[in-house]
């Protein structure tokens, strides 16, 4: 039976979780910094690229799937303005503009990912 009171080992677990959080965040920040260039929003459904929207131009895209997401690019940032999916987490995720960030609508299996225009495939950037 494990102890019922907080122990030093538990603090080590907290440190480990925070270290993991920081290193994942750092990996994504590094990948974003090493790119530079104008940012574009890639809209994917089921992993398939359906649109590429430069963040420099205002745009509006309706993504139909099992549900309907309205993706809006305005003043250099992209957001999912409205959605009829259950939960609406994608809408509440707000506006993003930094490369490496993503908006996700899981019920509709849609992902809006900000990448830099000149970027090599993002997967490689993270792995390297």
């Amino acid at each position: 039976m494990n102890d019922l009171s907080f122990r030093r080992g538990d603090a080590a677990v907290i440190a480990l979780i925070l270290a993991a959080a920081i290193s994942v965040a750092a990996a994504f920040a590094l990948a974003a910094v090493s790119h530079g260039g104008g940012a574009v929003a890639e809209v994917r459904r089921d992993g398939e690229l359906i649109a590429t929207l430069p963040l420099s131009e205002d745009a509006r895209l309706v993504v139909e799937g099992g549900y309907t997401n309205v993706v809006v690019v305005a003043s250099g940032a992209v957001c999912i303005e409205s959605s009829d999916c259950p939960g609406g987490d994608c809408v509440r995720s707000g506006r993003i503009s930094r490369p490496g960030r993503a908006l996700v609508c899981l019920p509709n299996r849609v992902e809006v990912r900000v990448v830099s225009e000149t970027a090599a495939p993002y997967v490689d950037a993270v792995a390297s």
């Binding site: 907290i14 979780i17 925070l18 993991a20 959080a21 920081i22 994942v24 965040a25 994504f28 994917r44 089921d46 992993g47 490496g100 960030r101 993503a102 996700v104 899981l106 299996r109 992902e111 990912r113 993002y122 997967v123 993270v126």
Partner: peptide
């Protein structure tokens, strides 16, 4: 699971936030 469903790595950029909250 999200990475598998969306076939994308960048969903993991959300992981640090979730990990901090999970503490």
């Amino acid at each position: 699971a999200a990475m598998a469903v969306l076939r994308s790595v960048s969903v993991a950029s959300y992981l640090p936030f979730l990990l901090v909250v999970s503490v």
